[in-house]
Write a protein that binds this DNA or RNA. Structure first.
Lengths: 369, 369
DNA sequence: GGGGAATTCTAAAACGTTTCAAGAAACAAG
DNA sequence: CTTGTTTCTTGAAACGTTTTAGAATTCCCC
């Protein structure tokens, strides 16, 4: 207080506040009676500093409570130690798993994760992309939103040497590193499983069909049917939006068709939840009347009624892999673009069963009521 | 390419790279034949610039693809337009809702959200706290982790005038703004509901009992029992960790007691999921043998088996409210610390019913079907 | 104790922006 | 054409760090 008055004799409120302000290297240097450069060297271990000086610096730092301005540091170094991540929808429980995988790997290497939620809005994604780039990130991991302009945006010169990894989905035209999953294989296995149980009328509710994920999952479904020469019924392919509501709506559409499918492959687990809701509303039993397979293997799948058979993606590991790929790039690897594709695994639970042998008059009545 | 060669006649690889580098204000100024200050004024609208000059600047900006270095800007202004948010566990589906509430409110006001996951680790929380502060955020919203040192850390002078809002939980000793929920009232209502159904042996699995949330929820439970003069059985109070595993473990403990409780109040919905798993394992029926009420009202509650009765928290609105409180602070409001407390609402679903003991034959049959 | 080598330390420039005092230009009024 | 006033524009300082070249000190060996 006294010192404050001495420093700012006019002593107005604003000046008083200054005593509360962030302490800088300059003050540390003064207190420790060394140059500012020496302080920096102590802080960063970037040159030898003799014991007495080093001690005084460290003392000053802790007594004054100095925190370096990462803003200034990043500015000077033209590089921060932050990695940005853009995800399309934080409310989809699949993504947090992936985020954790990324975060754990980065944190271990002293990088920090800055997460942004694009809200499935390519415009917002672009805003975040540009702003993050303005902060001179160390790198960027993007799960592209539907209609992503990632490729074009990152082509801009301001992104210069910013390493970017595309995760979970391929942005259209993307040529850089990516980590994805065997989407086609996943739905192929799912569909095959249904076929083996005797289903012949299998429908699919896809994601938006300009997202590679959704396309690939549809392809897996097609391949499975083609293999056993079951013709593909166009009405059995419904394009949703990877969310619960669209799952519900498209399920209603499907279940009102005649003949009604005896099994549904959902584009992801949220869609599957929507299907469950639709089934309940129509008083159809799952799996007795309609079997259902989701995609993602969310934690909650074991708790739904019935428990949900689903194609498991290794979300956490996908994130971790993407992070390690990014770290390699940050450390200057010059290898050609890598495309990691991870395996899926069909997790069989309660929502699938053989089709009712005679799914006709009786069950149709049910639909009508 | 040609231009590059002209600019860097010695043409070594490093120099070549420079042509790919971020374009700065200096280059815009040169190209538009104005001073650097004028460019800044155009970019920030901070002084009148006559039409011809302004046009040339804007042209240069778009033709050279200029993106201001937010790092440099933040550094100079000693303030960024980023708001930090620290949450204890991104895998708990309650938090993403809150995050969305925060993000939407901030985004509308041109602030960006940087999300960090403290992993329920006070050490990690502190690291993030300090680093974020090093980036001169506009503000900070924290859902304190268990054992949070928030109050002490933010007391440090480097946090000077950084507005901080405490969300969902109170950090010990926290005197600043906060947004929380009527925790006690929530479990009070839940417990009362069970009492009204005839339950007399009601257990609770709390969160960690040094988190105010957990304490308050326990208090609500206690109050409800006290009101009807039911003695509190110490073994019926089990301290968990707000996660599924602890819910599972504590439920096993409870269900092996004798007399076994006929109803369980769970500290949150993840705990409730754990309880469901335990019930299933012990082949107990819910709600016939044991009724169950959770806390949070997660989206998935409607889909569990049975669907989960839960105390709903307005997660999204809590986030939005916290964000608007923060925006007020950022804009310099000097009002005394605000403590917003939001209402809960009991959402009744399938996991509660009257206890078996008081059933007559008829209702038992009903339950068995 | 002297000379060179090795080590420690410092001064100063640089990073890209904002901001402010003050110069230049345009404009208006006499 | 002055003069005064307003509006544009500019140059330069400043923000807090890192980094580099070189000055200062210490060390070592003769």
């Amino acid at each position: 207080m006294l010192e404050a008055l001495r420093l700012f004799p006019d002593g107005c409120a604003d000046e008083m506040k200054k005593t509360l302000q962030k302490v800088t290297m300059r003050q540390i240097a003064a207190k420790a009676a060394v140059s500012i450069g020496t302080v920096s060297h102590v802080v960063n271990n970037t040159a030898g500093v003799r014991e007495p000086a080093r001690r005084r610096v460290l003392e000053a730092i802790s007594s004054l409570g100095y925190q370096p301005s990462l803003l200034a540091r990043g500015f000077r170094r033209n590089k921060t130690t932050i990695v940005g991540m853009i995800i399309p929808d934080i409310l989809n429980p699949f993504f947090p798993q992936v985020v954790r995988g990324v975060e754990d790997a980065l944190y271990k290497n002293a990088y920090r994760l800055m997460l942004c939620n694009a809200d499935n809005d390519d415009k917002k994604e672009q805003v975040y992309l540009n702003e993050l780039c303005g902060y001179r990130l160390a790198g960027l991991i993007v799960i592209p939103s539907v209609d992503s302009h990632l490729t074009a945006t990152v082509g801009n010169s301001s992104f210069a040497d910013l390493p970017v990894i595309c995760l979970d989905r391929h942005a259209p035209g993307w040529k850089g590193d990516s980590v994805t999953v065997e989407n086609a294989e996943g739905t192929y296995q799912a569909t095959r499983h249904l076929l083996q149980l005797g289903h012949r009328s299998i429908a699919i509710i896809t994601g938006p069909l300009h997202v590679n994920n959704a396309i690939e999952r549809l392809n897996g479904y097609r391949r499975a049917l083609r293999e056993v020469s079951i013709p593909i019924v166009p009405e059995y392919i419904q394009e949703g939006r990877f969310d619960r509501l669209s799952g519900y709506e498209k399920a209603l559409t499907l279940l009102r068709l005649s003949p009604c499918p005896t099994a549904i492959v959902a584009g992801n687990d949220l869609v599957a939840l929507g299907v469950l809701a639709a089934l309940q509303e129509l008083a159809l039993r799952c799996p007795a009347d309609v079997s259902l397979i989701g995609f993602d293997d969310l934690e909650l799948d074991a708790f739904t009624n019935p428990s949900l058979t689903s194609v498991a993606q290794p979300g956490y590991h996908m994130g971790a892999r993407a992070a390690s790929l990014l770290l390699d790039r940050i450390n200057g690897t010059d290898a050609p673009a890598q495309h990691v594709v991870m395996q899926t695994l069909l997790k069989i639970r309660g929502s699938v069963g053989p089709p009712l042998a005679t799914f006709d008059a009786k069950s149709k009545n049910k639909l009508r009521r």
